[in-house]
Design a protein around this nucleic acid. Structure first.
Lengths: 333, 333
DNA sequence: CTGTTAGCGCATTCAT
DNA sequence: ATGAATGCGCTAACAG
């Protein structure tokens, strides 16, 4: 069934060592020999066993992407971005959902690492800032890259966008449309970006001389439900906002549902803004204003940084990589 | 760093074979010995290397879930369902997106199987009916389970819901609400369920004596964009439908966006119905009528069937498993 | 019930 | 520039 390196070596008339050298792109193999080996590999449809390579060598060509996020669109984006780069480099990715509040978290991830001989790990928010995970990774000396970490920037390479500036852009946009009573739904408290987006919102409002109204700021959790709930509360109030800015698109969709339930037209009665890079943004378009966050690009860049660090000859990349968020998507065609 | 079975055996004062027996839940180990070994395992935080197990034995405790679906919500549902069961059984899952139209498909999946020593594969639609994948799996003699296959039911265990009956339920519901001009957006042509849902829709309409109107049936692809396009076309027509039934929720969301763009109120001007089990369904609730398809449960059941088949002592399960779709979600609180 | 022995498929010394 | 020998960590007969 599956062919082995031994069969390849026999077919090519060389030793297994030489085949191994070809497999790993090592120098000192005569071009013609290399061709013969490659021909044998192709003919036998040989695939090196990850298990054998991991056992014999010190690399498994496998990494993991850790996430704990309620948004399927977000998860899909980071999975797609990370996989795209891994495929290019011949690496396998484990998509691992986890619960950063679970007591067994460290054990679970330690198990994943030990069992699968991982070469490195990508952390997406909010795992990027989980002390438990970070501590574990540091102790295990495993390379890791973080997406949008909020603190301890020195401990690992990371990629991010400027959340505060992006949120301020959205708020500026709403004000420019004439809104003064703007509701805000904060993201999940475990995500550092939640605070940054709130800060950007506040800064923008202050810049326009708009006083803050505590009743117009609600806690959300980045999921549809929390946006729906917060939206209902604000829209059912005696004096309601003319616009609501949710910290991500899933919550913005929840607000939209709430508006529908209450018989409000969007954006006539209420304008809604979101934040992210998903089709959900389009769902309420044109009424939705949003930041097209390049989540996919972020994950791709993270995978690249990680694999570059893992590969022997890999050039050191910049420790910090800022991926620019594209600007506010206009709410007019 | 990582401890090995040898260290465990030394710590427990037994041979590695005995540790292996404990690891694999084999009989004929004195209870007390088993306890000693388990204590040593816990103390050393020992994790058996998947690589070593795969190499020495004939099992890797790894399976793959193949999908090729444009809906992030759907993907998230099947991933979550499959993972839930795999965790219970100590299996690892590879979430593998693929392109069933790609020329290199067989090579890619053959590579996955050979490289990772897969124990089995779960196919989700439309991969469930990909001749290329099925042929490959049959030749490799690898156990596989299919979710919602459309044909060749004899070649593998499978799980499904009755798509036709479910779609008919939705259509019946719309008719009961007084609709007679109902648009329909077909799902992706590669999915067998697309045809089944269309059949259910047609059967229901015929049952109510409503003549079919070809201009009210459009081809979609299960993604937001295609729903949006089809929705625009039908809603911009001189005589538009009073309701549109999209074959999944992503397309229903697209129709909703189209309605908004055209200044139509939902469900006042146009009622929209979807099909699936995602939060998207709630997005347009109450205007949305939908079938709450238990996608997660389907994937969970598929994983169970597969692992039962893979495990040595695993009891043969029913070859066919029908998971009931819950009924139409009412469009009134 | 328990231990001994021999590989699984590769990367990796060390030779040549 | 190439090959022979060793072992990674575990399971699988085979003994006892």
């Amino acid at each position: 069934m599956r062919s082995t390196i031994k069969e390849v070596s026999a077919a090519a008339g060389v030793s297994v060592t030489t085949v191994s050298r070809v497999l790993n792109n090592e120098p000192y193999v005569k071009p013609e020999t290399r061709r013969r080996v490659e021909a044998a590999i192709a003919k036998l449809e040989f695939r090196p066993s990850v298990a054998a390579r991991a056992l014999a060598g010190q690399r498994s060509f496998q990494i993991a992407l850790l996430y704990d996020n309620p948004s399927p669109y977000y998860i899909y984006s980071i999975q797609t971005g990370a996989r795209a780069h891994c495929v290019e480099r011949g690496f396998r990715v484990f998509f691992q959902e986890c619960d950063i509040t679970a007591p067994g978290l460290a054990t679970e991830i330690a198990g994943l690492i030990a069992e699968t001989h991982l070469d490195g790990v990508i952390l997406s928010p909010p795992v990027s800032d989980s002390p438990v995970v970070i501590e574990l990774l540091k102790r295990s000396k495993l390379p890791f890259v973080r997406i949008a970490p909020g603190a301890d920037l020195g401990i690992s390479p990371y990629v991010f966008i400027n959340d505060e500036a992006a949120a301020a852009e959205v708020a500026d946009h709403l004000v420019a449309l004439g809104h003064r009573r703007i509701g805000f739904i904060i993201g999940h408290p475990d995500h550092v970006s939640s605070g940054q987006r709130l800060a950007g919102f506040r800064r923008a409002l202050a810049g326009h001389g708009i006083a803050e109204d505590a009743t117009l700021i609600r806690q959300g959790y980045f999921d549809f439900d929390s946006g729906h709930r917060a939206g209902r509360e604000m829209l059912a109030a005696a004096v309601r906002p003319t616009a609501i800015f949710a910290s991500n698109d899933d919550m913005a969709a929840g607000v939209l549902a709430a508006a529908h339930e209450l018989g409000l037209s969007v954006p006539g009665d209420i304008a809604i803004a979101g934040f992210d890079d998903t089709d959900l943004a389009r769902l309420v378009w044109p009424p939705l204003t949003t930041i097209r966050q390049p989540t996919r690009a972020l994950a791709y860049a993270a995978a690249k940084m990680l694999i570059d660090a893992v590969e022997p000859g890999g050039q050191r990349l910049a420790h910090e990589l800022i991926v620019r968020a594209s600007t506010v998507v206009p709410d007019q065609p």
